[in-house]
Design a protein around this nucleic acid. Structure first.
Lengths: 206, 206
DNA sequence: TAAAAAATCACTAAGATTGGGGGAGAGATT
DNA sequence: AATCTCTCCCCCAATCTTAGTGATTTTTTA
């Protein structure tokens, strides 16, 4: 039984190249190659792919929305994004939408074929820059203007806790919490909770 | 100029094995091999490693805390975790603490040596299971009990916005927001914002 | 060691927010 | 016909949040 691969890519040259490359492997077969998510979705039940290689710049429906729709209909299908985009927004949008892997187009052919196997054996193939970006998203800004206590308070605030609850959890007085928040607002140059959280999250202070 | 590698691992056999393996490469050299983070930290300025391979189960200071301290003192050093732990808590704690890579101990030798190069060329080497875990952490639960509108409201609530602001942003009445939140609380079986956010985040509803 | 920063607690006051209770209509879906 | 979803409305009471001004103690840093 061959691995059923599908391709969604609007550039003819790239699409045909991918198809040839994959079909050249004895245990893989391309069951569909389309230029848009609309087409891919229409044929999804017939093609029954296990893995979809997908570009993000597509005519009509965006790749991101395509990923969402495909994953909603067939959660078991693994989608690997193949794109030129390396900007963090695209990467995280694609992963949030349900992509299992993210390869940039400068990857060589063997890396690409490896990715298909990797995604089917429980992995998440990524270009190394992308992997670093993803891992980096977990790490806090080392140059935070906030003190560790202030950060602690802001994190509890981010969890939706009230001043009173925060005070209890940190074994300090509610007035102290207020004082910390006052200083946080001043340092971040904001005057509401929502703005503070936005700045803090954007700058990875929490 | 050789790549300067350090090892922190309390198991003698594993540590010596790693050291031999790395020193066998002409362009890499082990500049320090320790059984604890305390020792590693003490010699950090002298050893000047570029990459540290670190276990997480260590006598004395935990690996997680070790990572934090090392990264705080020398942010440019790349730390690759080498451990048996595959539980998500450990993985995310290590990455948040500042690890640039995460390899499980069943990895073969060549993969390990690749990881060292990968981390120095801007990558984030991970075992494939770990990579999937990390990527999976971006994806929402597909079986959310909440409607899309409710999810939308909850996401704005998570940003610290008030009912009034949420109402404005969604072009609906404040009372409607309240109504949604009432339903969210009922569905999640909670009665405070903080509890709702905790459940929602734990189950990846937002 | 002296100065600066951080963490702690205090009071007042006004306005906004939140949560609990009830209900109800319109539209879509099943 | 029944259910779900989204929308809106009312009342009420407790709590929260912001703003202003202040002070003390501990820790860190220059």
């Amino acid at each position: 039984m061959k691995n059923r691969i599908e391709i969604v890519e609007d550039n003819d040259v790239v699409r045909d190249g991918l198809q040839l490359l994959i079909n050249s492997m004895s245990d893989h077969t391309v069951v569909g190659a389309y230029i848009s998510c609309e087409q891919a979705l229409k044929n999804l039940d017939h093609d029954m792919p296990e893995v979809i290689l997908m570009d993000l710049d597509l005519p009509g429906m965006s790749g991101i929305e395509g990923i969402q729709r495909i994953k909603k209909r067939s959660p078991h299908i693994h989608i690997i994004v193949i794109t030129v985009h390396e900007d963090s927004e695209m990467v995280f949008e694609a992963l949030c939408a349900g992509a299992s892997g993210y390869i940039t187009k400068n990857a060589n052919h063997s890396r690409l074929l490896d990715a298909i196997d990797e995604v089917q054996t429980g992995g998440a193939p990524m270009s190394s820059k992308i992997a670093r970006m993803v891992v980096g998203s977990f790490q806090k800004n080392q140059n935070s203007p906030l003190t560790s206590r202030e950060t602690e308070v802001l994190e509890l605030l981010a969890k939706g806790k009230s001043y009173t609850v925060i005070a209890d959890e940190l074994f300090i007085h509610k007035e102290t919490v207020k004082s910390h928040i006052k200083n946080i607002y001043f340092k971040l140059q904001v005057n509401t909770k929502a703005d503070a959280l936005e700045i803090a999250r954007k700058n990875k202070l929490i």
